[in-house]
Amino acid sequence: MNRTRLGEWGVLVFVWLGLVALFGTLADHFLSATTLTTVASRLPALAVVAAGMTLVIIAGGIDLSVGSVMALSGAVLGVAIVQWGWPLAAAIPVAILTGALAGLGTGLVTVGLGIPSFLVTLGSLEICRGLTYAVCDSRTLFIGAAIRPLAQPMPILGIPPTVPVALAVVVAAQAILSRTVFGRHLVAIGASEPAVRLAGIDTSTPRVAVFVLSGALAGLAAVFASARLGSADPNAGAGLELAAIAAVVIGGTSLSGGSGSVVGSLLGVLVIATLEAGLAQLGASEPLKRIVTGGAIIAAVAADALRRRWEGERG
C-alpha cells in the first residue's frame, strides 16, 4: 500500500472521528451502545455492496442494479426458507448465487455487446425489480426467527455477527484489488482498456467477473438486510445503488475508473452512516437529513477534485 493511499485513508478516518466528536458534543446520547448497535446493524449491507461497487467502478464500469439485485436475492431467500422450508445454511448460498447470476447476465451483455454498463444496469435494475415482485408475489415475506440471530448483537462485543463478515469481505476485496493479478487487471482496464487489450491481456473475463462479484455481494447484502428486518421486502434496496456510489466516491475512488480502494469505500460508508445516525439523534427532519447528506457527497467530490488539480499542477 503506497503512502498516498494511506494518507487518503487517514483523512477519511480524521473526518469520521470529527463527525463522531461533533455529534457526541451536540447530542446527549450519541456516544452510547444503542447508537453503536444501530449503526452496526445497518452498516454491513451497504459495506459489502459498496465493496463490489468499488471494484466495478475501478474497472471503468458502474452497477446501478445492486438495489434490485439485493431485493431479488432477498425474495429468493425468503421463498426458500418460508415456502420451501429450507434451512438457513442452504438458503444463503442460493441467495448469493441468485445475485451472482444477475451479475453474470449484466456482465455478459455489457462485454458481449459492447454497451456501457450504465445503460445495461439501468435495464437490469428494472428487470430484477420485476422478477422480485414475481418471485414473492409482490408481498413482504416474513422469515422471522430463522434469520434474526444473524442481526442480534453478540454477547460482550455488542455487534451482530454480520459486522465481522462484512469486514472480512472488505478486507478480502481490498486484497484482491491490490495483491492479485485479477485486481491489477481491473485497475488497468479502468485506466485504459485498449492499452490492456493491446498488451495481450484478456479483458473480457475480468470485466464480466467483476459484475458477477458485485451481484454476489448484493446477494450477501440481501441476507444481512433480511436478518435485520426478519423479512424479505420486495421494495428493499431502493436507492441502494446511489448510497453505494456515494460511499465509493467519498472513499476516494475515481468515477472514471483506474484508481481507488475498497477500504476507502468502507470509510465512506462509515461517514455516511454516522452522519445519518447523528442527524437523526439531533432530531433533524428527513428533508434536512437528505440535504446534509447530499452536501457531504458534493463536498467530498469537490475536495477530491481540488486535490487532483493541485497534484496535477505539481506533476
Partner: peptide, 28 residues
C-alpha cells in the same frame, strides 16, 4: 492511449503482460 496507463507507475506499466511475475496462481 493504447500503449500505457499514464496514471499508473512505471512498475505497473512495464509488467502489464499476460504472464506477469507471480508466486502462487493469481497472487502477485
Amino acid at each position: 492511449h493504447d500503449g500505457l496507463l499514464l496514471g499508473q507507475s512505471m512498475r505497473v506499466n512495464a509488467l502489464l503482460l499476460p504472464g506477469q511475475p507471480r508466486a502462487r496462481s493469481g497472487w502477485i
